[in-house]
Design a binder for these strands. Structure first.
Lengths: 285, 285
DNA sequence: GCAAATTTGTTCGTATGTATT
DNA sequence: CAATACATACGAACAAATTTG
């Protein structure tokens, strides 16, 4: 048969929203009004609204009403740089220039320093045995006073023992730990590898990014492992960003100066001919 | 006061799941059993289960029960290549080698060819006026008979007019359109830029990837704009992947042969000292 | 500052439909 | 066909947040 009633209502509301309803920030009809409009019970229209909520179309505010979610102008984060490998750090300086280019005001918290025992991805990325001590430097980043990203870098404790005691200082290093390690220990970063995943936020991230309580907004997790000239991993940096207001750009090879850096907008889905397009096709060769 | 009842139940269930409940694939207690266990109504335990569903913890199957979601071994997709810029195509050949390295069997559908009018990101990425004709080649990709990705590439119609009529043939080009365009028109790809976003799936994607109906699984969208030696855009390729079973790897600079390519696992969230960590810190400098 | 009105949030009860075994 | 288990839908009452008078 047809869709259940709550989904029919949700579809109808979605269609009305797409043609402008509530786009100006005004609330949708109240639940009681919708109940009368659709001749359904209040619980059923609430199910319809809930369907729209989990899809990120609307949000509800107690005592106020239901509102269409305004899409956020995405913030663009480069993962690669024209200017050689040296620039690819996560220093406050490079963070600032990336952010300020876009007319926003960056802030960085002083780092929280911890000595931890490596395990899991930290141990495997740094190629250390489980239980080896590592230095963890954790920072919170803001853009225009709103939370931007959470970042934790891990370094082998042996760096400190060899003299890089600055890694233990709970002060921001504007010039970056990359150049610091090169100055003090002669360790030069010659490349890195990023692993990009999306997952549900943990509680720390939900609180920090002020994400909606219902966990429908995911976070990007970027795991960056940096290597020195001998091919040894020198650092693991894990950075998380809210997925609803960030996008990443990777440039490979030769690309003109300022390509379409602000490509906001949806693409229209391609036409899918049959209803069985989710089944494998005949093998093409 | 405390949390509402349904959330208390959800938290309790989540804690039990974390200590092993239902991890072996066996169903959780039925709704009626949970109603008795917690002394709440069936609707309330259903609210608790719904809370777990939107967080991707469990799924329900009518007539069977509630099951803990098994996490999928992620599939790793490289966005950059050691072997120079030439390799960075989206040809079937490169798709196959990337996939087969991981002991899986790739399949590619024959492309669906369309002539469209450029608009939105297609027009801006290819730097064409709105309404210019473009060739669209759409393919569906599978891994071991399960849906892997949806891909649509857009080329300026002028390429066809200059002789690259192969773009209009609805047959897969195993060697890739990149080398085809170089052979026929002498257009050489020298670089590209990827833009990585996540968003809710549209209906086409939900059906093709067999994503759960409630839209809690997002999709990656990779917009790749490729450029020739003159800095002119020659192609826009949009590829989407389910976000729950894919991750992307970007390598910049010099990185040893086979770094930790299979770093599955969670990272422990860093300690956040105060409860106001979501507020901006004092300016560091 | 308080009280009333409005609006969404939570919780119960009940009945019936649909999918699976 | 019957039993089981989740899905949908209705009605009702009270709680909590917000705005308004």
């Amino acid at each position: 048969m047809a869709d259940p009633l709550y989904k029919q209502i949700a579809d109808d509301l979605l269609q009305k929203i797409e043609t402008g309803l509530g786009r100006d920030g005004s609330p949708l009809p109240t639940e009681l009004e919708l109940r009368d409009q659709y001749g359904a019970s209040r619980n059923t229209v609430r199910d319809a609204v809930k369907w729209l909520i989990t899809r990120g179309v609307v949000e509800t505010r107690p005592g106020k009403g239901t509102f269409v979610i305004q899409k956020i102008n995405p913030f663009i984060i480069p993962l690669s740089f024209d200017s050689g490998v040296g620039g690819g750090d996560e220093s406050t300086a490079s963070y600032r220039s990336a952010v300020q280019d876009r007319f926003r005001r960056p802030q960085v918290s002083d780092p929280l320093i911890e000595i931890k025992q490596a395990s899991g991805i930290v141990a495997s990325a740094l190629q250390l045995p489980d239980g080896t001590n590592v230095v963890s430097r954790h920072q919170r980043r803001f853009i225009d006073d709103t939370p931007g990203s959470l970042q934790t870098s891990y370094y082998p404790m042996s760096f400190v023992e060899k003299g890089a005691t600055g890694l233990l200082q709970a002060r921001d290093m504007p010039a970056g730990t990359v150049s610091y390690l090169e100055e003090v220990l002669g360790i030069k970063q010659v490349g890195w590898q990023d692993k990009i995943t999306v997952r549900a936020p943990d509680m720390t991230e939900s609180v920090f990014f002020k994400l909606p309580d219902d966990g429908r907004v995911a976070v990007f997790e970027i795991q960056r492992t940096a290597y020195d000239a001998k091919g040894k991993p020198i650092r693991l940096t894990i950075t998380t960003y809210p997925a609803d207001r960030n996008q990443f750009v990777v440039t490979i090879g030769k690309v003109p100066e300022n390509p379409t850096i602000l490509g906001k907008g949806q693409d229209q889905p391609p036409i899918v001919p049959a209803e069985d397009s989710a089944l494998p096709p005949r093998l093409s060769r």
